[in-house]
């Protein structure tokens, strides 16, 4: 069943200083099914984050439309949980209050907020840190809070914008494994933006490869390698070769064009 339908999205920005229009996303259409883990893979500045922001409702497309769960996206809402590149927690709230922020906005009593937040704090492995402020935690721990906060809203889809990009290699691997486990357990739909081929192939069951700016979808394929995935296996390398080939074609074409 189609969960997110992206049809003919065009997004251009106006560069006020140079008085020029910049085409960031060029006619992108994409259908994402229920329970998919889609990785949007592309080089920096290709418009993948812009696309994600439009699904989230932070940005409006210049033309085209996006539907989530059959409803056209007009503005941000709690049906779409977003995990940002930086944790983006409220620095004045402790871990428990950050995770339960959505419940506070809905006017739910403090005792119930605490109880419901606890479930997700435990899920992301932050038991014992409920009363800590974000400034007292590491980047990885803060990003876990960000994930718990998105999960608590029980959203139809979770949108993740390179959430592990700022983490060290070891923490990143840990978090990637946990994310897959969480996704398997709660079976939500995830759209995950990344510029890392390895990360995309490790996480996604569908991969959308985007071209350089203006962003277009170069390829969109299923990747059903069984989990846990071994990044050194021939199957993984086979897939990686294919994706890298696509990217190489792409850069050759853009060099010729230039």
């Amino acid at each position: 069943m189609a969960e997110i339908v992206i049809s003919n999205i065009v997004k251009s920005f106006t560069d006020r200083q140079r008085n020029a229009d910049i085409l960031a996303v060029d006619n992108v259409s994409l259908t994402i099914n229920d329970h998919d883990f889609v990785c949007l893979l592309g080089p920096s500045g290709c418009g993948k984050s812009t696309l994600l922001n439009m699904i989230a409702g932070f940005d409006k497309p210049t033309s085209g439309r996006i539907e989530v769960g059959g409803v056209v996206v007009q503005k941000p809402g709690a049906d779409r949980g977003v995990v940002f590149q930086q944790p983006t927690l409220m620095p004045w709230l402790n871990v428990a209050d950050n995770v339960a922020f959505h419940l506070k906005l809905s006017g739910i009593r403090k005792a119930e907020r605490r109880a419901r937040a606890q479930e997700f704090i435990d899920l992301v492995g932050l038991k014992g840190f409920e009363a800590h402020f974000p400034s007292e935690l590491s980047g990885g721990m803060n990003q876990r809070v960000g994930i718990a906060r998105a999960l608590l809203m029980n959203p139809r889809v979770i949108l993740m914008d390179e959430p592990f990009a700022a983490l060290d290699a070891q923490t990143k691997i840990e978090m990637q494994e946990e994310l897959v486990q969480i996704w398997q357990r709660i079976r939500c739909t995830i759209v995950f933006v990344t510029h890392s081929v390895d990360e995309a192939l490790l996480l996604g069951n569908r991969i959308a490869v985007m071209s350089r700016r203006p962003g277009r979808i170069r390829d969109y394929f299923d990747f059903d390698m069984p989990r846990p995935r071994d990044v050194t296996s021939p199957e993984f390398n086979e897939a990686k070769r294919r994706v890298l080939g696509l990217i190489r074609d792409e850069s050759r074409m853009s060099r010729q064009a230039a």
Binding site: V82, F84, T88, M90, H102, S106
Partner: peptide
């Protein structure tokens, strides 16, 4: 991004002002 995060969690404009 803090404002975006607040809006993502369903805050109305008034809630954004007061809570974020």
């Amino acid at each position: 991004n803090l404002i975006r995060a607040g809006a993502m969690m369903g805050a109305s404009e008034r809630q954004l002002l007061w809570n974020v």
